[in-house]
């Protein structure tokens, strides 16, 4: 079966610094796949290249078997790619529901509408509300985003991505900045996502990774160190050395 997402010899250099080195990566359909690695390993850079915000130095990216290396983010979104950001990238002065509606309206193809008031697009508003409801944010829908506590803002970050109805979802540290006590809420949300969506999650919290992922890729200094099941990865000596061990110190 063609993988939902694939990279071939993907490289990225920032001047003399190599942040991605010959990355060959496959994300299967319906995958629950984690990408881990120490700080500065190049995980976010990898996601940026997959999404199209950053052009690779060389190599190819394929979405559902179609090469998209030169395509814009917009085109990739149309192919079913969506992402969240490690550092909140939201519309702070807008309401929570507007944050989501912007994404939903783009997907419905109505965001060019210039004459009918936005609120009359019931299907957009209703879908956004429903989405917020499933994430437990219905009561906050009409609040200004900036008024939300950080944990809930992280959920909005996910809500926007879900508003795009992606087939492939890239989650860049969805629980970053949230005390681990509260991160179970994020995990609940992730667990409830439709099985068909292929998910790549970047995460530092190993509990979360081991509970969520069925496959793990370890990245170190821009290169894939190893790939395998959670059991294989946690027992691998090299991984312990570069990553798990380091985190424990």
């Amino acid at each position: 079966m063609t993988p939902a997402l694939e990279t071939r010899n993907l490289c990225k250099h920032f001047g003399a610094l190599t942040v991605a080195e010959q990355i060959n990566f496959k994300l299967d359909a319906g995958a629950r796949h984690a990408l881990i690695g120490p700080n500065g390993a190049g995980k976010t850079t990898f996601v940026n290249m997959l999404m199209g915000g950053l052009a690779p130095s060389s190599g190819a990216i394929l979405l559902g078997g179609v090469e998209v290396t030169r395509q814009s983010q917009r085109q990739r979104v149309k192919h079913g790619l969506g992402r969240t950001f490690q550092i909140n990238s939201l519309f702070r002065s807008l309401t929570v529901v507007d944050n989501v509606s912007l994404a939903v309206a783009e997907r419905h193809g109505v965001a060019w509408g210039m004459f009918r008031p936005a609120g009359r697009y019931r299907s957009v508003v209703d879908e956004s509300m429903q989405l917020l409801d499933t994430l437990g944010l219905l009561e906050d829908a009409k609040l200004s985003l900036a008024a939300l506590p950080y944990g809930k803002q992280r959920l909005v970050e996910i809500a926007i991505a879900l508003g795009m109805r992606p087939k492939v979802l890239l989650l860049d540290e969805p629980a970053a900045g949230i005390p681990s006590l509260e991160s179970h809420r994020i995990l609940e949300v992730l667990d409830a996502l439709p099985k068909e969506i292929a998910i790549l999650i970047i995460e530092h919290d190993m509990d979360l990774v081991f509970r969520f992922a069925r496959k793990i890729t370890v990245l170190a200094q821009g290169a894939v160190l190893m790939e395998g099941s959670p059991a294989e990865v946690s027992s691998d000596a090299r991984v312990r050395q570069v990553y798990l061990g380091e985190r424990r110190e």
């Binding site: 999404m51 915000g53 969506g82 939201l90 519309f91 309206a105 060019w112 009918r116 936005a118």
Partner: peptide, 19 residues
């Protein structure tokens, strides 16, 4: 309009609008 809302989105966070 939705167009107007998307303009506000672009002003607020153009990177996210692209994404």
């Amino acid at each position: 309009s939705p167009f107007g809302a998307s303009l506000t989105g672009i002003r607020e966070n153009v990177a996210r609008m692209h994404a």
